[in-house]
Design a binder for these strands. Structure first.
Lengths: 125, 125
DNA sequence: CTAAACAGTGGAGTGCGGTCCAAGGTCAAG
DNA sequence: CTTGACCTTGGACCGCACTCCACTGTTTAG
């Protein structure tokens, strides 16, 4: 499919997709006329990218993962390893969040940690 | 305490603290000589700021929360509400992570979602 | 008295993750 | 053969969250 359709399907702009290609997250074939051509798998991949991003991974990290993946001798194995890695990261993140939650629960009902701000700057913050 | 000590205590740079003041996250008194003076409560507040940031809140949002807080009729109640809100955010994040984890677990062993990149650009990704 | 270690200011620069734009090429429909 | 929708490129620009810098003022120790 061409870039416009892919953009529409995943809810990104064409500019964003070209940018992703620049930073190595997305690849494309080229038609004879120079147009980018994407395989259907680009859709789940971009959904995955979005998810990873939401989890706090930078585009650079996502690109690295993708590269590791495409360079691995055994792709299926590499992919499984990558996923296993991410699952570990997720577990860590979840533990952090749980700790945070506990801290907040404990603090709710405590003194205000912010000093009173009588005439605090009301810029477009 | 002065800015250098606060910076050391919370692990931020003095520049960052001045920047936080600019965007309305932090306030300070001034000594006669112009030096900023911070109360001890600034430490837990900044820890809280960091936490909120880790949860994906922008500094602008955090500043807004801080303002709401300092303007609330009942500060203790407002603070509890704020914490309760963040706990809900945490719960949502955790659920997302759990979902992603399940997805990754399911996908591990599946086809690679990234197209092969024969000579992909090796910029400093 | 001087030097070092702090503090202040304004402004420029950085890295990330895009977005916007101008100038132009391609292609299908009428 | 023109119109309009789509595509190409490069480069400028944006908001966020800092970070660095130059230059100046203050305080403290020797």
């Amino acid at each position: 499919m061409r870039i416009g359709e892919l953009a529409a399907r995943v809810g990104l702009t064409r500019d964003a997709l070209r940018f992703y290609e620049q930073v190595g997250i997305l690849t494309s074939e080229r038609r004879a006329n120079g147009y980018r051509e994407y395989p259907p798998e680009a859709v789940p991949w971009l959904e995955y990218v979005r998810t990873a991003q939401a989890l706090g991974f930078s585009l650079a990290e996502i690109a690295d993962h993708g590269e590791e993946l495409s360079e691995a001798p055994d792709q299926a194995e590499a992919l499984s390893a990558l996923f296993a890695d991410k699952i570990r990261v997720i577990d860590t993140r979840m533990a952090e969040l749980a700790a945070l939650r506990a801290e907040l629960t404990a603090r709710a009902g405590t003194e205000c940690p912010l000093r009173k701000t009588p005439g605090s700057a009301r810029r477009r913050v």
